[in-house]
Amino acid sequence: MINLFLRRLMYAVPIAFGVSVVCFSLVYLAPGDPLQTILPSDASADTIAMVKAAYGFDKPLPIQFLKWLGRVMVGDFGQSIATRRPVVLEVTGALYNTSVLALFAVPIAFSTGFSMGAIAGCFPGKWIDRVLTGSAVLGVSLPNYWFGIVLVIFFAVEAMVLPATGMGANGSDQFNFLRWSDARYLVLPVITLSMVPIGIIARTTRAAVAEVMNQDFVITLRAKGLSETAVIRHVLKNALPQVLAVMGLQFGYLMGGSILVETVFTWPGSGFLLSKAIINRDVPVLQGTILMLALIFVATNLLVDLMQSWIDPRIRRT
């Protein structure tokens, strides 16, 4: 198992490196010059050259990349062009805010989606399957920002039982875990964010469970006289690796934050930060955020990989 972990970790390193190359170069592939936003439109050629040199934009790209990578390795992502604050603070702050949402959305979405899918998969074609699969399709299909706005209209504007926006009593400043009343600010964004993962996980689980249910060994389990509960436990364990793969992706998406949902609820998370960085052409922030999110994806995939091979030993061999 430790061997396996080290091997998978070694696979992750080149992936992370590739990701960093893509992150770095994406910004140069995008149209527009990042310096335009901070330089006055009538700046002289000397000034432009000076600012370019100050930010290191005058060097050849490979050199810029290596220098950037060297700094990134020690946690220095540079300075935000828009706010002049260190990128690390911007990114970690935003990631923290998003992870507050994810902390609640992940368990809710994963357990609900998995249960719905498991029940539907055990009774394929029955009315309960139709109802659950139907709701899952609805969850995936409804645009979640629209759903968020509808929730705001019902619970904040009409019923006035929940706050419409912000992270707590101090507005969009800081979420405080120790202040119970701040929990009310979580309800609507967490529900809104959970919709899509619930739908996707429910459908994946249903498909996996229904497929395993049709396998020969399920007849053997019944022929052994096992109770239906015990049979379902076997089936779920067999279906789990497939579901975990999808859960890993959904976890990554939730950590990436939803630009639209975070905008609807003015929740200053990573999606919100990304959209701001794009609009301002804030290259260092963009690079830092994308890289961090990509690394979270890589780490999640590594974890999913290990969990899968722990559950299904056949995966270990490949």
């Binding site: 020969d216 007849i219 053997t220 022929a223 067999n238 299904d312 056949r314």
Partner: peptide, 13 residues
Amino acid sequence: MIFQEPMTALDPV
């Protein structure tokens, strides 16, 4: 009961 395909008749996990 003993089944035909020992490959698929046992739970793989």
